[in-house]
Design a protein around this nucleic acid. Structure first.
Length: 268
DNA sequence: TAGGCCATCTGGTCCT
DNA sequence: AGGACCAGATGGCCTA
């Protein structure tokens, strides 16, 4: 986490995203900030609309939005609680006039979309929490999180496969007894030597040349959670992304086009 | 200051 | 019809 930013989490009843250190209180968000609608000074749990109430949006977040204000051109500069165009027509086409029911549906859809994205972000947070990283390491971006998860799962799978194969090379080709297997697996899995032996380090370095696998667990009994997959730097990893599974989401499965090409390809 | 990352709004499409 | 999902657009914050 950067010293100048603070990451807050919806699930903690706070705001997800980067806020200036002195603006962690949503009520102090600048007027133009896209998150200023999060201002919770009213402690309401509903949207107040012209057609009624949009029920329980965020539970922990109090949002009061008067669609009267949103829909009135005359009051566009008089939005309550720093409401921005996000809540009053969005950042896109703000010129289109919507009827009250249409506006109501649009606002409800926006709220659903926010909830959906928040759920997605919670999932990303959970994923980050199970990916080895440094305590002081800057929070992984979404793209980096997916990349790291992919690498991590692959390496663990290969590690497990290597362990199972080695254990099954016992006398007469039979697997070892369960408790013996468990003990041996524990040692093999968590010993740095075994990591090299099972190809984890090799695999890591072949798939991510600038990535080093370390273990702060001098004790072979320590958990795999202590393994730290380190990029020499975040930028190194980012640079590698261009050579590993595509760059910035532009792999073969998503988009292999440059921005310019993409623009042409998606132009309707 | 440019680029990266993110949150949000929006309209279209698909599904139930 | 309404909700989920998606991609484009927009603007803010942060970092190199």
């Amino acid at each position: 986490m950067s010293s100048k930013t603070k990451h807050l989490n919806w699930s903690d009843g706070n705001i997800r995203g980067r806020l200036p250190e002195d603006l962690t209180d949503p009520s102090r968000l600048p007027r133009g900030d896209s998150r200023s609608w999060l201002n919770s000074t009213t402690h309401l749990h509903t949207y107040t609309t012209t057609t009624g109430v949009v029920p329980g949006q965020y539970g922990h977040t109090a949002v009061s939005v008067s669609l009267d204000n949103c829909m009135s051109e005359n009051t566009v500069n008089e939005r309550p609680f720093g409401i921005t165009t996000d809540q009053c027509g969005g950042k896109g086409d703000t010129t289109k006039q919507l009827s009250a029911p249409q506006r109501h549906r649009r606002v409800a859809a926006n709220a659903r979309e926010r909830r959906r994205m928040h759920g997605l972000n919670r999932a990303f947070d959970k994923l980050r929490s199970v990916i080895p990283s440094l305590e002081n390491e800057k929070k992984l971006s979404k793209y980096d999180t997916l990349q790291m998860a992919q690498i991590y799962i692959t390496e663990l799978s290969e590690l497990l496969e290597g362990v199972v194969q080695s254990e099954c090379r016992g006398p007469r080709g039979t697997c070892m007894p369960q408790d013996s297997l468990r003990r041996e697996t524990s040692i093999q899995t968590f010993s740095p030597d075994s990591l090299v032996r099972t190809g984890l380090v090799y695999a890591m370095e072949t798939t991510q040349p600038n990535m080093h696998l370390m273990s702060d667990a001098r004790d072979a009994e320590d958990s795999l959670g202590h393994l730290l997959i380190l990029a020499t730097s975040k930028s190194d990893f980012s640079k590698d992304k261009n050579e590993c599974a595509g760059s910035n989401g532009s792999d073969g499965e998503s988009s292999h086009l440059s921005d310019a090409e993409d623009g042409q390809a998606t132009a309707h």
